[in-house]
Every structure is written in structure tokens, then in C-alpha cells.
């Protein structure tokens, strides 16, 4: 049953990556650049939830709400202030700006909360463990699966079935045509940042409950999620989810056979091998750019 247990751990890791990865892929789809602040937005989500539970005395669902709404607002603010003025400035400039915003967020959070490592305990109703076919699954892990599934389903519906989703996909497909047609492209881009950041906030809370919360946690979370995006096919939402799950499982299998310090290396290896065989990623298309669902 050890194989099944490793699979469970891998899927939990992957589900967390998926929530962050989706935001990368959405922004890439519409603006064609990697929003490297994204992992740090998830970190801010962790601290918002920590504050909501600790200082404000709220329950977990309310804390998730605070993190999700707070991160959505933060994501929109970053787009409006840091990226929109640079929209015609080529690809390198917003990338450098993103790194600057990352450092700003990390240092601001460290200034307010300090560098100490924090944790928040799951509420009692998630503290239990169930045994599924010999594998242990904790309440928190079930919550992570459920929250990820619901969040990805809501996102799929929003992008695939609503007027806003059509406008987002039109803007991602052909920005100039969307402008000429009268599509409110600025609003579509803001919406993408809001959606991606809200999911990152959710990921921050879930990841924080499973592990620890520090001002620098966004870096490694962001890198893993970005690897998942490339693995799945950049610009593709289902690709990001599949890539994240594959990466999570690969990392944990690697940790079993070679030791945990190899898990990142295994991730990179899986990524490199996949791209050798399929340069467009698992679910990507050869014409990157479109947001696909």
C-alpha cells in the first residue's frame, strides 16, 4: 500500500501546485509573459489567512474568504500599477518589474510579520485521518483535493461558459482584434489577474496548513508551479492542472527512491524529458498563446 500512499502524497503536492499554476497559465495566455510575482501572491494569501485566524479570531472558511478576496485585490492592483503601464514595452521589462514586485512583497511581509516560521493548525473538523485502501489521508488533504477540484471547476465554467470567459479568451487569442471589436480588454486582463490571484490565495492557505508559512515560501512554490505549467503546456488550463499533478507525483516517487533532496531534481528531469518528446508540453498546442479549455 506504500505505492498508493506515495500517490496520495504526490496528488496533494500536485493539487497545491495546480492552484498556483493555473494563475501563471492564465496570465501567460492573455499577456504572453510569466508573472513571477504569482508565488508571492500565494504567500500573501497564507499570511492573510494567518492574520484572519490568529489576530481576528475567524474560522477557517472565513479566513479562506479573506485570503481569496485579499489576493484577488492584490493581483488586480499589481496588474494596474506595475504591468499595465508596460503593456507595449516588450517582454523583458514586465519580467524585471515582476521580480521587483516579488522582492517588495517578500520584504513588506517580513517587515510586518518578521522572519519567523509560522504554522496554523487545521480546525478540529479537519484534524482526523481516514484510511482509503490502506493509504492514510488526512482531513486537510481531503480539503485540499475538494477545494482544488471545486476551484478548477468554477474556473473552467467561468472561462468556458460565461460572457467574461469569452472576452478573456478572445483577448488571449488576438489582442488587437479584440480591441478593434470593442471587447473590454483591460477588464478581461484585470479579471484574469483577479481569478489567478484568488486561486493563489486559496493555495497559500491550503499549503500553509500542510506545511509552514514564511515570507520566502512563495519562491519555491512559484518555481514548482511554473515547472508544472511548462510541463502541462503553457497557456493551457487543463495542462497546468495535469502538469501539476504529474510533477507532484514524480517528486514524491523521486523522494522515495532517491531521498527527498532529489525531489526537485526529479521534477526538472521529468520536465526536460517531456519537453524533449513534446516541446509544447503534455496538453499544449504548437501555437502557444490561446487560453484553452
Amino acid at each position: 500500500m506504500i505505492a498508493l500512499q506515495i500517490l496520495v502524497y504526490g496528488l496533494v503536492t500536485g493539487a497545491n501546485y495546480a492552484l498556483v499554476a493555473v494563475g501563471y497559465t492564465l496570465v501567460y495566455g492573455i499577456l504572453k509573459f510569466i508573472n513571477f510575482t504569482h508565488g508571492d501572491v500565494a504567500m500573501v494569501g497564507s499570511f492573510l489567512a494567518l492574520t484572519a485566524i490568529g489576530a481576528m479570531g475567524l474560522g477557517l472558511p472565513a479566513a479562506v474568504g479573506v485570503a481569496v478576496v485579499g489576493c484577488a485585490i492584490l493581483g488586480m492592483a499589481i496588474e494596474r500599477v506595475a504591468y499595465r503601464p508596460l503593456r507595449r514595452a516588450g517582454r523583458l521589462t514586465p519580467l524585471l518589474t515582476a521580480i521587483g514586485v516579488s522582492l517588495l512583497l517578500e520584504n513588506l511581509v517580513q517587515l510586518v510579520f518578521g522572519a519567523a516560521i509560522r504554522t496554523f493548525s487545521p480546525p478540529p473538523y479537519l484534524a482526523g485521518t481516514v484510511v482509503v485502501a490502506g493509504a492514510y489521508v488526512t482531513g486537510v488533504q481531503i480539503a485540499i483535493f475538494a477545494a482544488t477540484a471545486v476551484a478548477v471547476a468554477v474556473l473552467a465554467w467561468l472561462i468556458g461558459r460565461t460572457a467574461l470567459g469569452r472576452q478573456i479568451r478572445a483577448t488571449a487569442d488576438n489582442f488587437d482584434l479584440a480591441v478593434a471589436m470593442g471587447v473590454p480588454t483591460d477588464r478581461a486582463i484585470l479579471a484574469v489577474f483577479a481569478l489567478g490571484s484568488a486561486l493563489a490565495g486559496l493555495a497559500g492557505v491550503l499549503f500553509g496548513m500542510e506545511t509552514t508559512v514564511t515570507p520566502t515560501m512563495g519562491i519555491s512554490l512559484g518555481i514548482s508551479a511554473f515547472a508544472a505549467v511548462v510541463l502541462g503546456g503553457i497557456g493551457s488550463v487543463p495542462g497546468a492542472v495535469v502538469g501539476a499533478l504529474v510533477l507532484g507525483v514524480a517528486e514524491n516517487v523521486g523522494a522515495w527512491f532517491l531521498g527527498g533532496s532529489w525531489s526537485d531534481g526529479i521534477g526538472v528531469l521529468v520536465l526536460a524529458l517531456t519537453l524533449l518528446v513534446r516541446p509544447e508540453g503534455l496538453l499544449g498546442r504548437r501555437d502557444p498563446g490561446a487560453v484553452k479549455l
Binding site: E210, N252, A255, W256, G259, G260
Partner: peptide
């Protein structure tokens, strides 16, 4: 002898081993 990564946050598979 099981190694775990500096900066890591998820050690469940290492513990399992």
C-alpha cells in the same frame, strides 16, 4: 539514510520510507 531538501516543506514520502 534518508536525505531531505533544504527549503523543503513536504516530507511525507521521506518519512514513509
Amino acid at each position: 539514510n534518508q536525505s531531505f531538501p533544504q527549503g523543503g516543506t513536504d516530507f511525507r514520502t521521506d518519512i514513509l520510507k
